[in-house]
Design a binder for these strands. Structure first.
Lengths: 130, 130
DNA sequence: TTGTTAATTGTTATAATATAACATCATGTA
DNA sequence: TACATGATGTTATATTATAACAATTAACAA
């Protein structure tokens, strides 16, 4: 079997749900919501999430254990993610800043490490919560 | 009671352990190790970890749910952390790069968000694992 | 069209990570 | 003293994530 071009049934159900939300969803809240569609077990959710992260359709917000859809068509692989997170209302926004990306992409440490991925999370207060 | 200048007993025990390791430790592995010192419950560990993170003595590696000592004397508060993580051997190194810090410190999005903290994790293969 | 392989699904159980709730103790200070 | 605060200890539980196994499905080559 070749690399799938289309998503599987469970993957579609779960991606749909995440895309409808503009905020990150947690795995067990997703599970709760998709029970009516016949997805009954955590593992079914986590498997779909893993795949969706792998192909860049969603990203994991590591500090929150939550998953958000990627709205950037260019971002086909979850290689380089930047988020801002409001510590008061928990609003999360994906950031696409060319200059910042360039700096991060080109970053080299002094240990000869070869990077293929990074994740950056900014924390603070959004406009509403200041 | 004033803000503590010195660490409490449990905080010391747990900081000592983390400082002796050059790699991140997980909460329950810490718990296992400090049982001989009379710390018996997860909550005792998590409380100490929370405090140590708060005062900048240790950092949490969010993508790994693990805790590492901060070796940088300047880094008294866990406001700005950068790590490199080898996806093969899981080696973690804290990065202090002046130029990068400057870019991150000064970063402004276009939404008027006020940042007070960030966490950046680079993933790749270290020299040994390439 | 059959056999092979890999991806996906479904299921039960369990592991790993983290917090709630409550009681107690120690210490600094009004 | 008595009050507030921070730390501790304890039991129970919540939350997040994976192991292990069986069955099914889709793509492709012989």
């Amino acid at each position: 079997m070749q690399k799938q071009e289309t998503l599987s049934k469970n993957q579609k159900i779960i991606l749909d749900l995440i895309e409808k939300s503009d905020q990150p969803l947690k795995a067990y809240s997703i599970l709760f919501d998709v029970k009516k569609k016949g997805i009954n077990a955590p593992l079914q959710v986590y498997r779909a999430l893993d795949k969706l992260v792998e192909i860049g359709k969603i990203h994991k917000i590591e500090s929150r254990n939550a998953f958000i859809a990627c709205k950037n068509s260019k971002c086909q692989i979850a290689k380089a993610t930047v988020f801002s997170i409001c510590e008061s209302c928990e609003d999360v926004t994906e950031i696409h800043d060319h200059k910042l990306s360039e700096h991060l992409k080109d970053f080299k440490d002094n240990k000869g490490m070869k990077y293929n991925k990074y994740n950056l999370e900014f924390f603070g207060l959004c406009k509403k919560c200041v």
